[in-house]
Design a protein around this nucleic acid. Structure first.
Length: 346
DNA sequence: AACGCGGGGTA
DNA sequence: TACCCAGCGTT
């Protein structure tokens, strides 16, 4: 049996039972694909179920506020996906009468749908003859065919797409695309794959040449920036606080946070306290300042490492436009903030 | 063509 | 720690 049919055969015996595999509804397939961009199935699955429950159709999603969409997306990361998801739902609902484009090229026009996602939707929902190339496909193909192209290089996508297209079995694009990705996720995993027990081990070139752990080749390294966040949880006489929306470019766009003092390095608690007293965030007089987490919270993003402190700042009187705890919980937060307040703020 | 964008799992 | 995950949009 050849490569493609072996994969399909393996897939039919080993595939996970996932809700978006039991449908050809392009709305559900689209939703799952957006959520699974750079995201593991285990992490995305609960969000998919929440979204389908709250937004059963593209019209329900289109009619929602962005803030509610972001709230449901809270914790999943890469929040531009949620904003683009919402925008695209409105295009589909209003301009296309709720019907998703039914081919690769038209899908590509939509916000948040790139080459991979367009191919995924086109093949899964419409069985169009287009190959998917994601991280799994790069890994499986580079190993099986011993391809040393740097997968982070500009030409790699074209090269692997062409190869994947050659491998598509007639009329079974849907199955093959699912199969090669599932194979990469379950069998041909990044580290220490179980090659002894693999349906392709007799013909895999990486295994033959003992290069499994060297492939795929990826040269680009991400460099990490360190940042130091001090969040001020103001509290007035009736327990209200201040929240603000992150409208600037950068991380957590359109999510909410407390008043923020960012310092360039590991500033001492005493110095931060002085900064809080000097900076006039609100008119109210400060009564008391208390550091809530003497041990800094380290929150790691893929490209930034954050050291986060939370300060309770008691002020006199009532804060203008203050917000109470119960209302605050309805806002979408970065998960590091949400985890802290849900644990430490009553 | 290179970079910014989350959060969590794995070794 | 370092790397990876059903990548995309911007510059």
């Amino acid at each position: 049996m050849n490569f493609s049919n072996t994969l399909i055969h393996w897939y039919l015996q080993n595939k996970r039972d996932l809700p978006w595999r039991n449908t050809v509804n392009p709305y559900q397939i689209w939703l799952s694909e957006i959520m699974l961009q750079q995201t593991r199935v285990a992490q995305g699955l609960p969000y998919f179920l929440k979204f389908i429950d709250r937004f059963p159709t593209v019209f329900d999603l289109a009619n929602a506020d962005e803030q509610e969409v972001l709230k449901l997306w809270q914790g999943l990361g890469y929040y531009s996906r949620a904003r683009n998801l919402h925008k695209t739902s409105q295009i589909v609902a209003l301009n296309f009468e709720g019907k998703f484009p039914d081919n690769y090229n038209d899908l590509l026009e939509l916000k948040g749908i790139g080459e991979y996602t367009a191919a995924a939707i086109a093949s899964f929902a419409y069985n169009e003859n287009v190959p998917v190339v994601d991280g799994n496909v790069f890994r499986v193909l580079s190993r099986y065919f011993n391809i040393e192209t740097d997968i982070a290089s500009s030409g790699a996508k074209k090269e692997f797409t062409a190869l994947a297209k050659e491998l598509l079995p007639d009329g079974k694009t849907n199955l093959f695309n699912q199969a090669i990705m599932e194979f990469g996720a379950l069998q041909c995993v990044p580290k220490n794959p179980n090659c002894e027990n693999c349906v392709l081990n007799s013909s895999c070139l990486a295994l033959k040449f003992k290069k499994v752990s060297d492939l795929p080749i990826k040269l680009k390294k991400t460099k990490v920036q360190k940042r130091f966040f001090n969040y001020l949880i103001f509290k007035d006489a009736i327990g209200n606080t201040i929240l603000q929306k992150r409208t600037q470019k950068g991380i957590w766009h359109n999510l909410y946070e407390f008043s923020l003092i960012e310092t360039l390095d590991e500033t001492s608690d005493l110095e931060v306290m002085e900064l809080i007293e000097r900076q006039n965030f609100i008119k109210n007089q400060i009564e008391n300042i208390k550091l809530l987490n003497p041990i800094k919270i380290n929150h790691k993003l893929s490209h930034q490492h954050l050291s986060v402190s939370f300060w309770e700042v008691q002020v006199e009187g009532k804060i203008e436009n203050g917000i109470d705890y119960k209302s605050a919980l309805n806002f979408p937060f970065p998960i590091v903030i949400y985890n802290f307040i849900s644990k430490n703020w009553k």
